[in-house]
């Protein structure tokens, strides 16, 4: 696609390189899937199990976002929008949880 200016960054040579990268990412994703399933059969205590599984999922997710969705080579505008989304996502996840874990304690007077 070297002919059109829009994708000048992606010449035919670049595409070959990228395809190689896609295959590497693909293999990594499959391996991580196997690993996370295997770990789940170790019957670890709940907290480490959750942390490990979420960590693996985050790694897989960022691989997909960075390479398949080429986030790694985008410009600032997308990062700004996604950063805002991530912050609000964190807000949405955490504040109800804090509210839940901080109830008014009712004391029973004997």
């Amino acid at each position: 696609m070297s002919t059109h200016s829009a994708h000048s960054a992606h010449s035919a040579h670049d595409v070959k390189n990228e395809v190689r990268r896609y295959v590497v990412v693909f293999v990594a994703l499959l391996c991580l899937t196997v690993i996370t399933v295997a770990i789940s059969y170790l019957n670890l205590p709940t907290l480490p199990a959750i942390l490990i599984a979420l960590f693996v999922a985050c790694v897989k997710g960022s691989l997909v976002a960075s390479y398949f969705m080429h986030l790694i080579s985008e410009k600032k505008a997308i990062y700004m929008a996604l950063l805002l989304t991530v912050v609000l996502f964190a807000v949405l996840m955490s504040l109800p949880l804090f509210a839940h874990s901080d109830p008014i304690v009712l004391r029973h007077v004997p």
Binding site: E74, K75, I78, A81, T85, L92, M93
Partner: peptide, 30 residues
Amino acid sequence: TGLFNAKAGIWLFLASEVMLFGALFTSYIL
């Protein structure tokens, strides 16, 4: 911006999808 219109559009749409599934994951946790 380094974006053509549809690409900007789909990323914003995906941002809203993140919030949609985020809300469902929050529900899951609670």
